[in-house]
Amino acid sequence: MVLIQKQKTRAFSIATITLPGSPKDLIPLLSFRDRVEHLLVRIGWRRRRYIVEPALYRIGSPMPDSPVIVTANYKLTVDTVRAACAGMDLWVLVLDTRGINVWCAAGKGTFGTDEIERMVRTSRLTDIVKHRRLILPQLGAPGVSAHRVKKITGFTVIYGPVRIADLRDFLAADMNATSDMRHVRFTLSDRISVTPIELVLSWQLFLAAALAGLGLWAIHAAPFPAAVVPLVGAVLMGAVVVPLALPLFPFRSFVLKGAAAGLLWALLMIALFPVDILTAARHLTLLPPVVAYLAFNFTGSTAFTSPSGVKAEIRWFTWPLLLWFAAGVILYFAELIRGWLG
């Protein structure tokens, strides 16, 4: 608990109280409260502070020959493990990843070789289990060097399935993963679960879009919906619609996906609201770069974009997008001035 207090945040209780130093029992069933927390954390509540205490835990009644699985101390991650492993008998070694999920912590190296060594040592795992095997989530592999773990701890690393839901089948098959268990997909439901945070994190852009729209309305350049809907809707297109409809845009580049969506949105606005040539030109220049930028940002949430690809897009598209957007800003002010002069 001393460690937790130093981090100035409360660790969430997920285990029964036991004698100090002995492994705690994970409560396998998620409570109503856990589920409410999960909804809140998806929209940014306690971001980076939704943690459990790093330690060795028990699920069910594990014996000295029961499997040891390793995970991160983000509570959403641990809860997923809890729910998926109900009814099994396992040891669960929770690493201190500062409340970050396995994949992102592996990228930073906090879910890594050294932290495994530290937790194996402090939990006295060698005294508790007879075997010398650790089952790691496959997506922890970018942070872990399996042969180094073997060398410094004596434990053999076995990479389990990508999704904890497959763990039962993986263990039943003598720890052999099917090709499907090893494959990261990025399904619509995956995208739905990471999109709310995109929305919350782009609140500044929403505010800017709303203010820009209200400015047009305030000086009578356009009626309320025609002034506000195109701009606010563009942010919504980039932050929500493009991520959800990602495969429907036939480009590899996220900037091009977003630009296409933005052009469609601009054309829809031109069709929907009465516009003259100046307003139509403003829609076609101001809206697509905004959608493209937001869509491009979604590369950070996907499970298939390479940093080299993202850098290439920055090289190719930064100046075109900036110039495109600048033209839109100039036309916006032209409209403001026209509205002002009446």
Binding site: G107, P142, F296, N297, T299, P307, V310
Partner: peptide, 12 residues
Amino acid sequence: VKVGVGCAYALI
């Protein structure tokens, strides 16, 4: 392989 952060916002 050249490893890195794949997020546009961080790279920009």
